[in-house]
């Protein structure tokens, strides 16, 4: 249940967005994808999930080339939350989350039961009948996260969840709740990939880190091994001292 990119190159027009990228998002793990704006994180997600096609290299899902997967079968295994979601129609929250069940042929009662389960996981049960358009930005994001999770909720042990900047609109309590839930999914065998900007939270909640810079992989592995003063300087062009807090959590202290 692993997503693997092997020596992938990806360009749009004359602009090279990914250069010889090899990366793994393994099952049972939460993998954080970090890097500066424009480093290629979103392109990596789009490539890994088949939305964009690499000009060279290969992508393997469960050791099978992504090209061999039909779009329908892929949607049952890989669920993705893109960076920005806009929805201008007043669907109820339940209806939006039910859209995550589109790839499946299961009956409506089963789908509704699964959606109710996901909504309760994200403390959104009371929101089920509210119009999506009436929600705050953070609430909308939680609904979108629920929609993506509902796509694979019936088979988490064979699922791949990719979230592009999922926590940006969430308050700290919901950010932590989100990390705990995806860690719970990973414990059941799901491969979780998260594009993040908060390095400290990423180091605390992710098992693995992929650090990107200018379309290349700068480092990949355990957070403590990847996040160093040098790698931060290289990836973000800022000076920071990387220390370990009292509970072993990685902390960044930026120079004045």
């Amino acid at each position: 249940m692993t997503l693997k990119l092997r020596q992938c190159c990806f360009s749009v027009g004359s602009q090279r967005l990914l250069e010889d990228v090899s990366a793994t998002i393994p099952s049972g793990c939460v993998t954080g994808i970090l890097g500066a704006n424009g480093a290629g994180k979103t392109s990596l997600v789009h490539l890994a999930a088949g939305y964009e096609k690499a000009q060279s290299g290969s992508i393997l899902l469960d050791a099978i080339d992504l090209k061999s997967w039909s779009r329908g079968e892929l949607a049952k295994k890989v669920a993705v939350l893109p960076q920005t979601a806009t929805l201008d129609f007043p669907f109820s929250v339940e209806e939006v989350v039910l859209m995550g069940r589109i790839p499946h042929q299961s009956d409506e009662a089963t789908n509704r039961a699964l959606v109710a389960k996901v909504l309760s996981l994200f403390s959104l049960t009371d929101f089920a009948q509210r119009p999506y358009t009436s929600l705050s930005g953070g609430e909308k994001q939680r609904v979108q996260i629920c929609r993506v999770v509902s796509q694979v909720i019936d088979d988490l042990s064979h699922a791949h969840l990719l979230f592009d900047e999922p926590i940006a609109p969430l308050d700290i309590a919901h950010q932590v709740a989100f990390f705990r839930l995806v860690r719970g999914f990973a414990a059941q065998g799901t491969a979780v990939g998260l594009v993040l900007h908060d390095i400290e939270l990423a180091c605390q909640f992710c098992d693995e880190i992929i650090l990107m810079s200018a379309g290349k992989i700068l480092g990949a592995g355990k957070p403590a091994a990847v996040i160093t003063s040098d790698s931060i300087q290289q990836a973000f062009d800022v000076s920071a001292t990387v220390t370990k807090g009292p509970a072993g959590a990685i902390q960044l202290i930026f120079a004045d």
């Binding site: 890989v78 993705v80 893109p82 979601a85 669907f91």
Partner: peptide
């Protein structure tokens, strides 16, 4: 109907739901 529901989310979202 189901496909149109998915399209209201956006092209990428619809793609990730398995729609051509």
């Amino acid at each position: 109907s189901r496909n149109l529901n998915a399209v209201t989310l956006g092209d990428k979202e619809a793609y990730y739901l398995g729609i051509d």
